[in-house]
């Protein structure tokens, strides 16, 4: 059985992204590199045949998704509601958390200049952020970070996929370098 066919079957049957490591567990002797080759084969094949879907990389995994040009067709059909877009306050709060993580509520509110408890709760309920630790200081405040679901929602492969700091104005870029030693 060809590896690309096995990978295809797994991607087809799964509703959420599967990482190369997860896919490699399908068969003994498979490794991540072989899986990545198989994914490349599938991509080339779908491209050649002009398929309506492709293998996309989101949230650190591979997923079969329909191509963007078919979005209008799907939206006209019986689409499932609820995959709604985020509000401006939610996006603003998420941006702060994404670049400053781990970050507490006080800092978010300081930057936005408005109370953000409700927004944080909503983002947590939608599993876009999670508590990743507790800060120093009074009451040991909860610190938030983004989740894999966050990456999936925005179509980022990993947190390094966030719009590059150099695409953003200067002050933010400096902050991100200081604040995130593990960022690329």
């Amino acid at each position: 059985m060809r590896v690309s066919r096995m990978v295809e079957a797994l991607l087809f049957a799964s509703q959420s992204p599967l990482s190369a490591a997860e896919l490699a567990r399908a068969e003994e002797g498979l490794d991540e590199e072989r899986v990545e080759e198989a994914v490349a084969e599938l991509r080339a094949e779908y491209e050649r045949e002009g398929r309506a879907f492709g293998v996309f990389e989101v949230g650190g995994g591979y997923q079969l998704l329909t191509r963007p040009e078919y979005a209008p067709v799907l939206e006209r059909f019986d689409s499932v509601p609820g995959s709604s877009r985020l509000s401006s306050p939610a996006l603003e709060t998420l941006a702060i958390i994404a670049y400053r993580q781990p970050v507490g509520r006080a800092e978010v509110e300081e930057i936005r200049g408005v109370g953000s408890g409700g927004v944080l709760r909503t983002l947590q309920e939608r599993e876009l952020i999670e508590v990743v630790g507790r800060g120093e200081g009074l009451g040991r405040p909860l610190l938030y970070g983004t989740t894999r679901r966050f990456l999936e929602h925005f179509g980022f492969r990993s947190i390094e996929d966030l719009p590059r700091p150099d695409e953003l104005p200067v002050v933010l870029a400096q902050r991100t370098e200081e604040g995130k030693p593990n960022a690329a």
Binding site: Q63, R67, F77, S79, R85, F154, G155
Partner: peptide, 14 residues
């Protein structure tokens, strides 16, 4: 990014 991502759909969307 969100807008671009929402143009790609996973199985089960319809």
């Amino acid at each position: 990014a969100e807008r671009n991502r929402s143009r790609l759909r996973e199985r089960g969307y319809v």
